[in-house]
Amino acid sequence: MISQQRKRKGLFMILPAIVLFLVMTIYPFIYMIYNSFTNLDLSKKGTGQFIGLKNYFEIFQDRLAISSIEFTILLVLIAVPLEMIFGLGLSYLLRDLFGEKVLRSLFLIPMMVPAAVGGFGWKMLFNFIFGPINYFLGLLGFQPIEWFGKLNSARMAVMIVEIWQWTPFVFLILYAALQALPKDILDAGKVDGASGWKLFMYIELPLLRPIIYVTLLLRIIDVLRAFDTVYMTTYGGPGSATSTWSFYAYKVTVSYGWNIGYGSALCVILVIVSAILINTLTRILNIGKELGLSKE
């Protein structure tokens, strides 16, 4: 048993970290919630009055906000599943392959590249006039594509960059999980006649399921706050076609306006939606039970 004196001493030691956490995290979050109920606009005088839920009602009438929601949903429904599929496929195919260590390091490069550098590089690759992608499409007999000039192509380009950058993250986690699977279970499966694809589908994949679910949640959380890829490639264009929710909140509060009240409301909605979505997925996928954290 830990004595009361040691408990008090331990609490005293971590007190600075608790205070720092409250000052740097909790207070700004509460202040943001308060601002979401005001008309605070740093570009105008005489603002900061309490206006109730007016900012929240305006969100549902804001065409740009609705467009940002649509693109964020597309990233969750298209980019994230493709990242999971590609990451799982690479982790399976890479095992016991010649040059495995070298290939593993190469696959991780996109994740290690800073978002600013990666986004700028892809912007050059997608360039309509001198971009290599359009050049190779021309060699194959296709017409050049205005990647950042049209709605569908711009959205596809951002998704390609997102998948390129974050598939290695999924690969890294699932590859490590595959390496850590209990050998006795795999050996027992091989003795029973399972090998290759059947061994993976009926033994390894079920064992990987908890890790897959957690990785999926991590990617969804990250995509919901996607910002840097959009900022470095399309800046939300054309129009607001590739603006994510986080990027639109940035534009409202910092870029083309200083409407702190409305931007705070956008951020609060994002937090609420993220919490509801993650909790719902956690219940549906039964992650607590899969990880052995729940007795139910």
Rank of each mutant, 00 (worst) to 15 (best):
P210M: 10
T280N: 08
F148W: 05
E83W: 00
R104V: 08
I220V: 14
Q5Y: 11
K198A: 11
R8I: 11
R155P: 03
T253H: 00
I30V: 15
L22F: 06
L181C: 11
L125M: 14
L64M: 13
D96I: 02
T233K: 00
L88W: 01
M201I: 14
T242C: 07
S105V: 03
F130C: 10
V170L: 04
M156V: 13
M84T: 11
D192I: 04
G239I: 12
I78D: 01
Y56M: 07
A177L: 05
I185A: 06
V273T: 09
R95G: 09
Q4G: 14
P132F: 11
S246E: 08
Q4C: 13
W245Y: 03
R104D: 11
L97W: 03
W245K: 02
I284M: 13
G118Y: 02
A116P: 01
W166C: 02
L74A: 14
F247L: 10
G257I: 04
F57S: 15
W245I: 14
P114D: 05
V19L: 15
L40K: 10
L217P: 03
K150E: 08
I211Y: 02
L151I: 15
D96P: 01
R283L: 12
V271P: 00
E296L: 15
K150I: 10
L277K: 06
L22H: 01
M156A: 15
G119Y: 01
Y175C: 11
D62F: 02
A177C: 12
L207G: 09
Q4P: 07
D222T: 04
A79N: 01
M112C: 14
E58W: 09
E146G: 15
T282C: 13
T229I: 13
E162T: 10
E58N: 07
I73Y: 00
I66Y: 08
Y248E: 10
S91Y: 00
F169H: 06
V19N: 04
F130S: 14
V19M: 14
P182M: 15
S255N: 09
L217N: 05
N35I: 04
K190I: 06
A194Y: 06
F71L: 10
M13R: 06
N152S: 15
A226P: 00
F128K: 13
G119L: 02
T72Y: 00
L207E: 05
M201W: 05
N35D: 11
K123R: 13
G257D: 04
Q143R: 13
L77F: 03
